[in-house]
Design a protein around this nucleic acid. Structure first.
Length: 611
RNA sequence: CGGGAAGUAGUUCAGUUUGGUAGAGCGCUCGCUUUGGGAGCGAGAGGUCGCAGGUUCAAAUCCUGUCUUCCCGACCA
């Protein structure tokens, strides 16, 4: 049956809602697809559900095509498995925690603790189900998935469906015994994702990523490039792409330092910033070939690292003076250098951190004047772990602090005069930095993360003891992959990518209907002809939204059709007396007059070409 | 959690500076007219001005507190 606008639960809005900023949010609300229920939480109206079903169907088809099987878990889960994997803690305030009636209440009526959660993602549940049912290598490999509502208590939900606290996600998980099988499952998902986004007409790009709180080794994000995106990634002309957090810096070749002059300490009064230091260097110690600049200095940044057990440790990171340290990148890898047993938090050092380490002279910190007398580093007088940027290669020569107030050392050579405890990716990536694979300079872009695929390895299987008997009859731990895809976020991204000043313009593959049929004009015969046309189109397998509203002026009907965004608009009106109807392309606005008896075939053909 | 803005009708907003009858557009209801680009006329329904205190003869308006929402940042598969 056609969807009759006279009956449809729909109210389009002329004004943008006051709380909506981005196009997808404004239009999805205005066109009657969704309504806000609470911050970051949305209700779905009939038109919205139609599109949601289309998006889910495409995802299902591509998941089934790679042999994944659909299951469904509760959104409400007991906390124990999440405690076993550490994520009850790791997720912190980002999960909704729930107490059931068994939990005693305190005097104020508040539960003493929480024993359930609204799941932010389901690795634990899937792992336990497989453990429950499978015990043999013969059962593997296995890929299973669900399309399910997820909950995250985001600190700041925003942009409508793009970043909500309740959202729908497709999550799949692969279980394999061999690394090869796991690679194959990962590759299959990667290909499936590319097909999914192609079918939806979204120009999504896979980029190298870091795995964050999920754990595991390698991962890739599928980003939709878009100005309002929250993720920054880099791209080279040669095709390298990575999230800024995951970019690696190509280390320059070591330099032969045999001919370099010895380092010299100079007084540099009042130069506790890179800028004043560079000025002073050019003023008092100019070099012949070119002026000093910030990149000639070695900036030693003090950071505080909160270890998994709560211990606060201080470390120093040496980076070229023209670079900014990105604490998030530091956080991603510094734990390994410090031997941390889990996630660490990194923050800029505060006054108290410096006071505890009197060897650090603020503004004049340096690694020490010779290899025999190191100041920074675990072997140095401060004993503080000293990590350096990859650009600090053996033989590179620096101006840096002399660990005395108002003094710097010039020509301090890495590897000759100072050493370090490790190399770390610590600085923010900039436009123009070289690509690690040599494919040209990097450009930064913004994007929205629509999917993320992970090699999880054995983290979850080990924590929850998922083992099967292998071919030799021995228990062997299963290797896993996990693959998320934000269904509601994808829908919003499509809306974000397909609209104009009149409204939405859905791709044919996800539109709420194939045709939006507008009847306008006086006279019974118009509505009779339109009603018949709607039925004929449906008989050909198309879905039709039929605007049969009487007493609604043509302008309103055309406006609503354009706002709702079905790709093909058919108008039955004044042309009918000549036996003609109009077929309009929503995207281009182009219209053609078609004989009434040719309308069905024209529209069927058009709809097929849009799939 | 820091910074900013805003809470008045279903919705988008004015009114707050300078205290004095609760307003407009859109939407909604009824009647008549109108039907190819958000129609016209007439008659209506609809608000504890976020909440709580205070000042005042009188508070949407001034003061204090509080809650909420949105934006930027921090944070975030």
């Amino acid at each position: 049956m056609p969807i009759r606008l006279s009956q449809l639960f729909l109210r389009t809005l002329r004004d943008n809602p006051a709380d909506a900023e981005v196009a997808s949010h404004q239009l999805l609300v205005r066109a009657g697809y969704i309504r806000r229920s609470a911050p970051g939480i949305y209700s779905w109206l009939p038109l919205g559900l139609k599109v949601l079903a289309k998006v889910e169907q495409i995802v299902r088809e591509e998941m089934e095509a790679i042999g994944a099987q659909e299951v469904h878990f509760p959104a409400l889960l007991p906390k124990e498995p999440y405690e076993a994997t550490g994520r009850w803690e790791d997720y912190g305030d980002n999960i909704f925690r729930v107490a059931d009636r068994r939990i005693p209440k305190d005097a104020a009526g508040k539960p003493e603790e929480f024993n359930y959660l609204l799941a932010p993602t389901h690795e634990e549940a899937f792992t336990l189900l497989v453990k429950d049912l499978y015990t043999s290598y013969k059962d593997l490999p296995l890929s299973i998935y669900q399309i399910q509502t997820k909950y995250r208590d985001e600190a700041r939900p925003r942009a409508g469906l793009l970043r909500g606290r309740e959202f729908i996600m497709k999550d799949s998980y692969s279980f394999c015994l061999s690394e090869e099988d796991q690679q194959a499952a990962y590759g299959a998902h990667r290909e499936a994702y590319i097909r999914i986004f192609e079918r939806m007409g979204l120009p999504v790009v896979p980029v190298n990523a870091v795995s964050g709180a999920m754990g595991g080794s390698a991962s890739e994000e599928f980003l939709f490039p878009c100005a309002i995106g929250e993720d920054t990634f880099v791209e080279s002309d040669g095709g390298y792409r990575a999230n800024v957090e995951a970019v690696t810096t190509p280390a320059p070749e070591p330099i032969d330092f045999s001919g370099l002059p010895a380092a010299a300490v100079h007084p540099t009064p009042g130069t506790d910033t890179i800028e004043t230091l560079v000025d002073a260097a050019n003023q008092n110690h100019p070099r012949e070939d070119r002026p000093w600049n910030a990149a000639d200095t070695l900036k030693n940044v003090v950071v505080a690292v909160v270890m998994p057990d709560g211990e606060r440790r201080v470390a120093v990171i040496g980076v070229p003076g023209d670079r900014d340290v990105d604490l998030k990148r530091v956080e991603a890898s510094i734990g390994d250098h410090l031997g941390a047993a889990g996630e660490v938090a990194v923050e800029a050092a505060v006054e108290a951190d410096l006071r505890k380490n009197p060897g650090l002279v603020r503004g004049y910190i340096g690694p020490g004047l010779s290899l025999e007398a190191p100041v920074l580093g675990e072997e140095g007088t401060t004993g503080l772990t000293y990590l350096v940027d990859p650009r600090v290669v053996s033989g590179s020569s620096w101006i840096t602090g002399a660990n005395e107030h108002d003094k710097h050392v010039f020509g301090l050579v890495a590897g000759r005069d100072f050493g370090w405890d490790g190399v770390i990716e610590a600085v923010a990536v900039r436009d123009g930095d070289p690509s690690p694979d040599g494919s040209g300079p990097l450009h930064t872009r913004r994007g929205i993360e629509l999917g993320h695929i992970f090699h999880l390895g054995k983290k979850y299987a080990e924590a929850l003891d998922l083992k099967v008997l292998d071919e030799n009859g021995k228990l062997s731990t299963v290797t896993m992959g996990s693959y998320g895809l934000g269904v509601t976020r994808v829908l919003a991204a499509i809306a974000e990518d397909n609209n104009d000043d009149r409204g939405l313009i859905w791709p044919g593959t996800v539109a709420p209907a194939d045709v939006h049929l507008v009847a306008t004009g006086k006279g019974e015969e118009i509505y009779e002809a339109a009603g018949t046309l709607a039925a004929d189109l449906e008989a050909q397998g198309l879905t039709v939204i039929y605007d049969d509203r009487p007493k609604v002026s043509p302008g309103v009907k055309f406006g609503d059709a354009e706002l709702v965004g079905v790709p093909t608009i058919v108008v039955v009106g004044r042309g009918l007396k000549d036996g003609k109807v109009e077929v309009k392309d929503r995207r281009s606005g182009e219209a053609q007059e078609v004989a009434l008896d040719a309308a069905v075939s024209t529209v069927v053909e058009r709809a097929a070409s849009l799939k």
